[in-house]
């Protein structure tokens, strides 16, 4: 009996259980802290829709052996470009939304290809190089945001200033276009963003299907054992590049979905640390540096966003202290540190 419990704990990993119990604890406390239970659930579901695709984008790179995508910023920037170009062109509603995605994919393919080439040159050290390449690109784009010739009055500094504003609202363009699509109202506080969830499900399905194709399986084999893949005649370098391009495309779509729900496009140093919550989420969901699946994404995002949604309000109301922000930092980064300390089997 004891052995079985031990096995279950190992399978599910202790930190994940702790996080799950903590979330349960928070949810149980919600009514007692003066908050509505259904509004908290609403929060969690909305956040899931917001962040799901971004976390989904991590899967291809993990599967091909490139590790966790600490350079998520390289997927986010194409997405940002897509979004602002779509607004610059004045496109609204679904046209604007899908135009943003389309343009983003264009940039994502280029960015993904270059990123993939780089990662191939630094095999074994992808994560740390990616982190700093990501930071450098974000700061480089800061310069670009100031210089690029955008004209839309919703985006540039007023009174004839130059350069884009740090935060650009997409209200009136395609804000909530997906979230409100086919939304289901349950009571006054609970609105299920069906559009978002369907979109996530669609992409997840496409990804799942992709990995069932010959190309997808080749990528997966590359990640499991590069030598074996080579002996099967698979060009591992190409497989890795393709996986990076796929990751980048999904990531670019992901940030647009995020903005669609959030209401703002964040430029300059906004995207600097955006890779960490996504990575923490997939790790909490059970993924490791070399293994990730769609269920990891779903569980992880629900748990991580669950705590992000529930903790601030509940803890603040109960303890009368605002411990939410540091707590989130501790959990996010603690998960990543924990995952990094787990022994990786050699490739």
């Amino acid at each position: 009996m004891k052995l079985e419990i031990k096995k279950i704990i190992e399978n599910f990993s202790l930190p994940r259980i702790i996080v799950f119990l903590f979330l349960l604890f928070l949810l149980i406390l919600t009514p007692f802290s003066g908050l509505r239970f259904d509004s908290t659930i609403n929060d969690i579901i909305v956040r899931f829709g917001m962040n799901g695709v971004l976390v989904l984008s991590l899967i291809p790179m993990v599967k091909s052996g490139c590790g966790l995508n600490f350079g998520l910023q390289l997927s986010i920037i194409p997405g940002l470009l897509g979004a602002i170009i779509s607004i610059e062109m004045g496109l609204r509603n679904f046209i604007g939304f899908f135009a943003a995605i389309g343009i983003a994919i264009f940039f994502a393919v280029i960015s993904g290809y270059l990123y993939g080439l780089l990662l191939n040159k630094v095999k074994g050290n992808e994560m740390v190089v990616a982190t700093y390449v990501g930071f450098s690109i974000v700061s480089f784009m800061c310069i670009m945001w100031l210089l690029l010739p955008f004209k839309s009055t919703d985006m540039i500094w007023p009174y004839g200033g130059t350069g884009l504003r740090p935060t650009i609202s997409n209200k009136g363009y395609w804000f909530n276009i997906l979230t409100d699509f086919l939304k289901i109202n349950i009571g006054e506080y609970l609105v299920i963003p069906t559009g978002n969830i369907l979109f996530f499900a669609l992409l997840a399905l496409l990804l799942w299907g992709f990995f069932r194709t010959k190309l997808g399986t080749s990528i997966a084999i590359t990640g499991i054992n590069a030598d074996y893949a080579r002996s099967c005649g698979i060009n591992i370098d190409n497989m890795r590049i393709i996986s990076v391009i796929v990751s980048t495309i999904i990531g670019a779509i992901g940030i647009i979905v995020y903005q669609e729900s959030f209401g703002f496009i964040q430029l300059y140093l906004g995207p600097l640390y955006m890779s960490f919550p996504a990575i923490a989420a997939i790790l909490i969901g059970g993924a490791t540096v070399d293994k990730a699946s769609i269920s990891n994404v779903i569980i992880g995002v629900l748990l991580f966003q669950g705590i992000s949604a529930a903790a601030p309000s509940v803890v603040n109301n109960l303890l009368k202290h605002d411990i939410a922000e540091p707590l989130r930092i501790v959990i996010t980064n603690g998960m990543i540190v924990y995952a990094l300390t787990r022994v990786v089997r050699s490739r």
Partner: peptide, 17 residues
């Protein structure tokens, strides 16, 4: 290096608390 980097964020959170 990655671990040290993430660790610094983690301990920063504890420091803040």
């Amino acid at each position: 290096m990655v671990t040290g980097f993430m660790l610094s964020f983690f301990v920063n959170g504890i420091y803040q608390i």
